[in-house]
């Protein structure tokens, strides 16, 4: 079977572009704190979701709705309503991370397909099977801490479908297990659906250097005329002992295009592209490239080479934890 390409859509226009470019599946979220890309100007209101899903279904594509932040105590109804509204809009599945929300989905909408978000960081077969037994989860998005052989071993031990990230932003920490951002800025992926948010970013020129600060912490310093990378916390430059370096991760993004054949033989069902904050033309181009890759694989032809390099952040990419030496 052809591997499923799962594409991001931050706007209805991006959804239509992804579907037209050949996405088997699109994922998106409501324009509020219920999803992990809660950025200004992004995401779907209820009408847009219904229309977007209808458009995708008409062209044979599926739509997954991400409701993958952790509901705030006392305000769970906001998240519960999002699940109900996704179902009413015709979503093919919802992507959840919070156990309380999974229990809600299981109890209130037993015929709604549940996917386990990467934000739940389910990193071994035991816990994946547990989510399946407990909540009826049908697919898990694997955290970016696993190597290809480990993914293969997981697939040998579970009937739950696996979806893996192949392109775009790269979390260095186990997803959903990180509060670096709220420590420095007050806002986090788990609680607010944002990481290293732009309103806490400041750039300062001092002497010949340009400092990038997040929450008042200087985590990048470049020469005045060098490009200043966005100060994402885990990809900043820091000092420890005698060393000044990107101690956690370089400002790279993930590109596992060359690993697609290995991921296929590891039993992976779907390939996920990160980037709901990206433009529709970016999304369309990434989709076309990955669709060409999986179609080539299916036809027994070699992978197209270097097709994604141009689209990567700052040009630098990594295969991340898929190669064991990354750790």
């Amino acid at each position: 079977m052809v591997m499923e390409i799962v594409c991001p859509a931050g706007t209805p226009a991006a959804l239509r572009a992804a579907v037209k470019a050949g996405a088997h599946t699109v994922y998106c979220g409501f324009a509020d704190e219920t999803n992990a890309r809660n950025f200004p100007g992004l995401n779907f209101d209820r009408d847009e979701m219904r229309e977007g899903i209808a458009f995708a279904h008409h062209r044979g594509s599926k739509v997954l709705v991400a409701i993958n932040t952790y509901p705030r105590a006392g305000d769970e109804a906001i998240w519960h309503n999002a699940i109900t509204d996704a179902k009413t809009a015709g979503a093919d599945a919802v992507i959840l991370a919070d156990p309380g929300l999974l229990a809600y989905g299981r109890d209130r909408h037993p015929d709604l397909r549940l996917h386990l978000s990467v934000q739940a960081a389910a990193a071994n077969a035991d816990i994946i099977n547990f989510y399946a037994d407990e909540f009826g989860v049908k697919r898990v998005v694997l955290p970016r801490v696993l190597s290809v052989p480990e993914i293969k071993a997981i697939n040998a031990e579970t009937k739950v479908e696996t979806e893996v990230f192949v392109f775009g932003g790269l979390c260095v920490m186990a997803e959903g297990r990180c509060s670096l951002s709220s420590y420095a800025t007050g806002e986090s992926p788990n609680m607010n659906g944002v990481c290293s948010p732009a309103e806490h970013v400041q750039y300062h020129e001092t002497g010949g250097a340009l400092d990038a600060k997040l929450g008042g912490y200087t985590i990048h310093r470049v020469g005045k005329n060098e490009p200043a990378p966005y100060p994402t916390l885990c990809k900043g430059r820091f000092k420890a002992q005698e060393l000044t370096a990107h101690l956690f991760e370089n400002p790279v993004s993930l590109n596992a295009e060359q690993l697609i054949p290995q991921l296929a033989s590891a039993g992976v069902t779907a390939l996920k592209i990160e980037g709901r904050q990206r433009s529709r033309s970016y999304v369309a181009q990434v989709v076309r490239n990955f669709r060409a890759a999986v179609d080539a694989l299916e036809a027994g032809q070699p992978m197209p080479k270097g097709m994604m390099a141009r689209l990567s952040e700052g040009g630098a990419t990594t295969a991340g934890a898929y190669k064991k030496t990354w750790r």
């Binding site: 970016r144 186990a174 060393l243 101690l247 956690f248």
Partner: peptide, 21 residues
């Protein structure tokens, strides 16, 4: 000290130019 994050990667090893294994 607050436990803020956990990773598959060992940063102490990375600092010393080694891998986790």
């Amino acid at each position: 000290r607050l436990p803020l994050a956990i990773s598959g990667r060992c940063y102490h090893a990375r600092l010393h130019g080694r891998s986790k294994d």
